[in-house]
Write a protein that binds this DNA or RNA. Sequence first.
DNA 1: ATGCTTATTCAACAGTTGTTGAAACATACT
DNA 2: AGTATGTTTCAACAACTGTTGAATAAGCAT
Lengths: 215, 215
Amino acid sequence: MANADTKVSRKDAILDAAEALFAEHGYDGVTLRAIAARAGVDVALANYHFGRKHELFEQTFQRRAEILNTWRLEALEACRREAAPAAPSVRDIIDAYLRPLMTGPHLKEPGWRNYYGMVAYVNSSVTWGGQLMTRSYDPAIGSFIDALKEALPEAGDEAIYWGYHCLSGALTLAFAQTGRLDHLSHGKVCSTDLEGGYLQMVDFITAGFERIGRP
Amino acid sequence: MANADTKVSRKDAILDAAEALFAEHGYDGVTLRAIAARAGVDVALANYHFGRKHELFEQTFQRRAEILNTWRLEALEACRREAAPAAPSVRDIIDAYLRPLMTGPHLKEPGWRNYYGMVAYVNSSVTWGGQLMTRSYDPAIGSFIDALKEALPEAGDEAIYWGYHCLSGALTLAFAQTGRLDHLSHGKVCSTDLEGGYLQMVDFITAGFERIGRP
DNA sequence: ATGCTTATTCAACAGTTGTTGAAACATACT
DNA sequence: AGTATGTTTCAACAACTGTTGAATAAGCAT
């Protein structure tokens, strides 16, 4: 068995290449040969390590999902500790949801940028959206829904879930970084500036949830 | 020239088929042969009417975009008239933006359902998102941005545009109808119930914009 | 009918697709 | 040294891809 962590294995090189290409062109827009070429390996190697193309896509997607879930749950746990014995505020919960993903040094890494593009693609894909997002993210997100329900005891379930839908839609569209905001605002706002968007989105989304908390 | 409106022409049949397939599988996931088969015509006919695959995709997308823009601008004009001589409220503007698309009898038509799936795909696609959404929708959306700026004179441009980003992300994710909300809510909320989501989203998004209006 | 224009099909092209079985290479253990 | 095990490449497969030019059908004015 070749060493798995000191050097970047070819297996990881395939995942990195797949990530970048899937993010830009989607599942069907990418060929195994393009992935292999980018990774500097033979076509057959992807098949050896990951099986069908389908499974390579899912493993690429899953790899960083687990990291993001950890970051988020840690942030939620931290804000729970700080607020104890009271329940954390809506704003703290939204912040714990967005901050780990929209701020920090990892935003500079091309790998993370690519992965965010994949999330945008998957989340609004009819084929992948329902299954894959649910499998990869919903367990962690359940904790956030619970926290929101605690913070907003008056809000109905329907309002909570559609509120989360707005949050998820806004975040994943930000991940796409299509440059559309740049066009629309005539350059005043930059799609790729996730940290700038973070400040704005926390205010906006928090207000939305606080509103559904009072009848 | 064959008649263009009394009977469904084969040209329209191709657009309908393309719409349904592009919505489900994206641009690269659909072959011209699949479109032709669904439309009941030969492969070459798509090329004869629309040129390259690229152009067929864009024309399919554009066809209903113009209709949606008309509906929206009429709704905005109507709420402007009702509010005159005052400026329309934030809520009225958001309502004019969402109601024409999220309510009404056209939601029952499979053609519109398919088209909404296409919008979801295009909006968060790195390849298409920036260019095609901008070209098809941004002229009309400029009027909504202007109206929001009037209604929220204290809000900064950055906050307005990121607010619009949240609105757009939430709407297009709703269009995807991936069924994820159904999983997450254990069946309490239905992804495909756009009219139910409309009521919730108007409240949520309106609160977000009203918040950025006061410092 | 005769012509003329538009619509539609047919047949085929050159290139690409995911996948696979066998062969070659590398590494570690004995 | 040999040998066993895990990696990687090579070569090829059958099927499918977008696109095109020529052939056929349909529609319509004359």
